[in-house]
Design a protein around this nucleic acid. Structure first.
Length: 427
DNA sequence: TCTGGGGTCCTAGGACCC
DNA sequence: TCTGGGGTCCTAGGACCC
């Protein structure tokens, strides 16, 4: 039962290139919030040696030194555009299999069972359809397990000889092993830099080494997770396709500020805004939170004595999805954490102990009419914000354009989700 | 000068209980 | 003089993912 992993190439950068054809064939990087780090690179940008996660100011200085600054176009993240393009791609992929796991914003697993054609042919049809309908290039990896499908996708992206589709499921063991032999073990799904280092000390340096390592030895030196990964590399499926996305167990909203803040009033604005956004996400999954954590910190990259980071968990009196109750708890936490002095660079909240509202035991002593009024109010709030745009209606403390708002110097228009930003065709 | 955000899972160790 | 053992639950921290 082969499974495919379909992954968009340089997803954010490709989305930008779809709507700005002059960027095609050029080095394009997309930056994280606040225009901080590089989070996506076109093929040409990778060729210039720009690293994933690299701070943009460093990459820019290096390129300037090499006289190549002009060769790169840097863009701020345009999440509205990427989320909308992602939805389009995922819907298209869903046409190719009744069993789909949307794994991330730019990746889907598909079960390819009972096809009337070789999976490789389906893979090519997937590529052609997504490209034709959205303008986005994808690669397809196919294998007997999810981990091998991931690795097959890696191969398809690396070597143009695969023409974008690599099927490991049809190869015999010898051929698979020949392909795994040159792949560093850190490329395997579930093996990061830390594990790779420890495995290196054991003489396990490639995907093939891990495939061949005895289970007992792996469990001695690492975890059951890695043991599963090794089994998957051998073609023994340990990971199921998760076709319905489970409720989140925690919901986080945190941001670095565009400019540092020092006053409690400004931090309160920020915490109010973040809590409101988190509460919106919570209600979208019909959830309630029983606790909220608040964090504030000064810059993590300055090593002066004034560095300060603190967090605190505040339990709620009863599980709730009401923005007002969550904000009140978050503010109580903030008041305990705040001290004057530090230049705060980042703040955030995390909703914890989540459960489904419908599954809560009613509280015999609570005023249930207050509960009903809260639900109606929150539903109305969400409806207005869906209809007129996020942030149209907020608590009075959440300002529309605070001083600490994120930098996004190079954001492209929200071509597909805002009527006033539609692309214009000149004839 | 300028360094992201949002998740998951596992493990070790402490508290507590009988 | 002699001072158990085993289970469960919770939390913090680490590692991983995109």
């Amino acid at each position: 039962m082969p499974v495919a992993l379909v992954d968009c190439n340089s997803f954010y950068a490709s989305c930008e290139q779809v709507f700005q054809p002059r960027l095609q064939g050029r080095a394009v990087v997309v930056l994280s919030n606040n225009d901080g780090c590089v989070v996506a690179r076109s093929r040409e940008a990778k060729a210039l040696g720009i690293k994933m996660g690299e701070p943009w100011f460093q990459a820019r200085h290096r390129l300037q030194g090499q006289g190549q600054a002009e060769a790169v176009t840097a863009l701020s993240s345009n999440y509205a555009l990427y989320a909308d393009m992602s939805n389009r791609v995922m819907r298209i992929l869903g046409r190719f299999s009744p069993r789909q796991e949307v794994y991330s914003i730019d990746e889907s697993f598909l079960e390819l069972d009972g096809l009337p054609e070789p999976p490789e042919v389906t893979g090519q049809r997937i590529r052609a359809t997504v490209l034709r309908w959205t303008g986005l290039p994808v690669c397809v990896g196919i294998g007997p397990t999810k981990t091998l499908a991931k690795l097959a996708n890696h191969l398809a992206k690396q070597d143009p000889a695969w023409a974008g589709v690599c099927d490991l499921a049809v190869l015999d063991a010898g051929e698979v092993e020949r392909l795994l032999a040159p792949i560093p073990v850190a490329e395997v799904w579930g093996v990061g830099q830390r594990l790779a280092q420890r495995l290196g000390a054991l003489g396990i340096e490639t995907a093939l080494d891990l495939r061949r390592a005895p289970s007992k030895r792996i469990r001695q030196h690492a975890s059951v997770m890695l043991e599963r990964t090794a089994l998957e590399l051998r073609g023994i499926a340990c990971l199921d396709l998760e076709t319905l996305s489970p409720d989140k167990q925690q919901i986080r909203c945190s941001r670095s500020f565009g400019a540092t803040v020092s006053s409690l009033a400004e931090l309160t604005e920020a915490i109010t805004t973040f809590t409101s956004r988190a509460a919106e996400k919570l209600r979208a999954q019909q959830g309630e939170a029983a606790a909220i954590a608040v964090e504030i910190r000064s810059s993590a990259f300055r090593r002066d004595a004034a560095a300060y980071a603190a967090s605190r968990v505040v339990p709620l009196a009863a599980p709730t999805a009401d923005t007002r109750a969550l904000v009140a708890a978050a503010r109580a936490g903030l008041n305990r954490l705040y001290k004057p002095g530090p230049a705060y660079a980042k703040a955030g909240v995390i909703l914890l102990d989540l459960s489904r509202a419908a599954e809560r035991q009613p509280d015999l002593f609570a005023d249930s009419s207050a509960d009903d009024r809260s639900q109606v109010l929150m539903a109305t709030l969400d409806q207005i914000n869906r209809r007129f745009g996020r942030g149209s209606l907020t608590l009075a403390n959440a300002r529309p354009a605070p001083r600490w708002r994120r930098r996004e110097q190079f954001r492209s228009p929200r071509y597909t989700t805002r009527l006033d930003e539609l692309p214009v065709a000149h004839c």
